[in-house]
Design a protein around this nucleic acid. Structure first.
Lengths: 219, 219
DNA sequence: ATTACATTCCAAGAAACTTTAGAATGTGCG
DNA sequence: CGCACATTCTAAAGTTTCTTGGAATGTAAT
């Protein structure tokens, strides 16, 4: 029967996408690529895996058409093949967060005070940042900041904070963010700042989460 | 470093969801469950696989918390564990449709005249159905119709159409729909109706797609 | 042309997943 | 109780995926 056979084919095609997101390493690569395009080497070191392995996983993602690659000089630069891929990653993550108790406890365990934003708190943060009442810092590597960042945020990569403390006001609240809820850089930044006497807190939003809410991103 | 280890854990949790959607059979089960809750036996026969195999796949879906089960008498009834699971399935499918050329050709191949709806055509169809200008028929099994159907649609299961032709007006356009773009029942229904001299066409929307557009569903 | 470097290709063992068959569990019914 | 039925569990074979090491490709610089 043609019906069943061609029908199976359809689900098989969708399963190609499913298989692509079935590996933790590949999900981490998608998470990183949600911050902007990157070279294989960068992706490998950011996700702490071997370059060869990263290349193999990227190949799988490329075959499922979730990412695209272009060559630039000696480097090959990967990027997501559309903004719908970011949505897919966020969707997958939110389903996991909602339904897997294990993920919730792992998240709580990771962050001392996980500040989850609501629509209102996002709006009020935006307003306070606009008026200069709080200082929003982006603690990701500068290239990621340049690819897009939250409104009014200034770049202050985690690796540079210690020697750039003078740039931060001691009397205002500092709000740090990084790549998203799975990223620990803002957590570390807040720890460091509090140690030095600043009033600091983190938010779990990153650029992809912020953008997914329909809020503006500066580039 | 605690950082990396706990971070890996997070992606591993999300990958549990990814692994669950990495198999064509399981995707078909999710597609079927998007139409409403079903017993193992129904799911197995609808997807043309062995009951034992269906049970095994359902177990995987249950462990990833994408589905839940309850016992009713001798039967065990599975259902999606939330409406966000429908969204995930639709999201996955739309990514595949957009990025995989192979899926697009398979879809075209399957359906002679795939009528994809836009926001406007959905609204105008709804209006015409309300005014009785077109007759919308739901050709899925009646239980699925009862679980929820498009506004103004009447139930006319594919298996019953032939002996219920008298119920249909010969002078009005008949619009058939079934489970969604991967379902072939509306295609068959249209072929049958045209053979009998009716003016009929299909739409690829099913209840999940319709609802995902924010349009009303009757129950 | 040669060298250096980023990345991919290839091969192979380990690990995980899929599928089928047969046994086992749990429920309702006479 | 004992039978019929829906479903799950267990075991085993076949298949696919993951990971690593070594070789190969392609580009830029000397």
């Amino acid at each position: 029967m043609k019906t069943r056979k061609s029908n199976d084919l359809l689900f098989e095609q969708v399963a190609r996408v499913g298989k692509a997101v079935a590996s933790p390493k590949r999900l981490e690569l998608l998470d990183l690529l949600s911050q902007g395009e990157k070279t294989v080497e960068t992706l490998a070191s950011d996700s702490a895996i071997d370059v060869k392995l990263a290349s193999a996983h990227l190949k799988v993602l490329k075959e499922a058409r979730l990412v695209e690659a272009r060559r630039e000089g000696r480097f090959i630069i990967y990027r997501l093949s559309g903004s719908d891929i970011v949505s897919l990653w966020l969707n997958l993550r939110s389903v996991a967060e909602k339904h897997l108790a294990e993920l919730r406890v792992a998240l709580d365990l990771m962050s001392s005070a996980p500040e989850r934003l609501t629509a209102e708190s996002r709006a009020s943060l935006l307003e306070k940042a606009r008026q200069g009442e709080v200082i929003v810092i982006d603690v990701r590597p500068e290239v990621e900041y340049l690819a897009g960042h939250l409104p009014y945020a200034r770049s202050m990569p985690l690796s540079e904070i210690e020697r750039r403390l003078a740039e931060l006001p001691a009397d205002k609240e500092i709000v740090a963010y990084c790549r998203g809820p799975f990223c620990l850089m803002s957590e570390e930044a807040v720890g460091l700042l509090r140690e030095k006497g600043f009033r600091a807190r983190k938010i779990t939003d990153g650029v992809p989460e912020w953008a997914a809410e329909g809020l503006p991103i500066e580039a």
